[in-house]
């Protein structure tokens, strides 16, 4: 399905790199943030052929507020990416509140995918971190990554 609006855009930062992320609701925002992060990592929008070998992870992330939750969820995905050498291509969020997100994510090992890792993201930062709903009801987030 074609998005009615941009899902994310890059924001330049002298030493690091930022993303401005959009979502029609909170779930959409979190998914687009993950897609944006793996766009930075691979330089591509990840879309895998059905026959690709897949792995599935059930993730439950907790944090003391919505902004922290976004950082924690992205850091949890980064941790799996680094330790299992996978990238993600599909995200299902079963539950989300201000403090908890329960999700199922689908991954493929990088070596079994057509993608390459072009950028190492060290971590997701709290710098200029912002999550809010604009006057049109669209959810927006600003995130800076340490690279």
């Amino acid at each position: 399905m074609k998005n009615k609006f941009k899902d994310f855009e890059l924001v330049e930062h002298t030493a690091d790199i930022g993303l401005k992320i959009y979502g029609k609701d909170e779930k959409d925002l979190f998914i687009n943030a993950a897609r944006g992060m793996f766009f930075l990592i691979t330089g591509s929008r990840i879309s895998l052929a059905p026959e690709s070998i897949r792995k599935y992870y059930a993730l439950e992330s907790e944090a003391p507020g919505r902004e922290d939750l976004l950082v924690t969820w992205l850091n949890d995905l980064l941790y799996i990416h680094f330790t299992d050498l996978v990238i993600f291509d599909d995200y299902i969020i079963d539950y989300i509140s201000e403090e908890v997100i329960k999700s199922k994510v689908r991954a493929v090992e990088i070596k079994d995918s057509p993608y390459q890792i072009v950028k190492e993201i060290k971590a997701v930062t709290y710098h200029n971190l912002q999550v809010c709903q604009n006057k049109n009801g669209i959810w927006e987030a600003n995130i800076v990554f340490d690279i």
Binding site: P64, N75, Y79, F82, A123, Y126
Partner: peptide, 16 residues
Amino acid sequence: GFGHQVCTDHLSIMQK
């Protein structure tokens, strides 16, 4: 990655 994860872990603790 070791240092990156240590910083990530403790930034979260420091927020609280």
